[in-house]
Amino acid sequence: MVKSRKRKIDDLIIAAVCFLFILICLLPMVNILARSLSSSQAMINNRVTFWPVEFTWESYFYVLQDKAFVRSLWWTALLTLICTLVSLTITILAAYPLIYENLKGRRFYNGMMLLTMYFSAGTIPNYLLMKQLNLIDNPLVLIIPNCLSIFNMIILRSFFHTVPDSLRESAQLDGAGPLNVLVRVYLPLSKPVLATLALFYAVGRWNGFSDALMYVPNPKYAPIQLKLYQIINNRSSIETAQQEGFSAPVASEGLKSASVMFATVPILLVYPWLQRYFITGVTLGAIKE
């Protein structure tokens, strides 16, 4: 069938509208990137839009001089690594037994886990629990209380279900116990899903803010988002300088842009790798038994 002329025009209009959405998503980030690479003089004169003006790395050097900020970057990276490993292990342990249909107590266990997705104790009861467990100001509080996401558990379980039972049964006939079956049959098959979950957990920890704000008053353990929040909310900025008539080169605006970039770039780096998998992941998560 030959496509009509009107059809083709429609296709182009749709493509153009989609391009508009692309611009909406990208331009804000492009502007911040341009600011972070521009001289403070260019920024004060409002000459920066979507391309660096008077290209310089000076904002990044300023940020790197802040020892607490650099420390926080490393600390968050370490935290993210630990959290991802711990979370992945627990998620596997939580999801795998569920594929054994005649395991006694399976339904109860499944219900008990799913229920926590709809009912939670609330901010204050959770905070009081951390106090009772002596976890306030303890770095463990940034790792353990959110180490298992039920949503991710569902994704993994749904994936395990797609593995043919015959594979499991033949391994069992060879005398393999459940642990062996997991390590030899299921885990090698689920590498893509495990990669997706690892990245979900990693991004979650890297972006995590409120647990640090509430449970970790000690600035020593402040993760990057908390640090960034403090930098952004710092009052001294070009705005006040301009309002008060100073034209002194205030570096703080560029510093804010560069700080935002430091928190964003790791995500941009893992994103292309991540997005190959996550569509399958999210669709699997929609199946809830």
């Binding site: 911040i32 890297w206 972006n207 995590g208 988002q225 960034l228 952004i232």
Partner: peptide, 15 residues
Amino acid sequence: HFLSWIIISGMARQL
């Protein structure tokens, strides 16, 4: 979707 609200609010305040 993968950017935190802290990052987004930081961007928004500058933009």
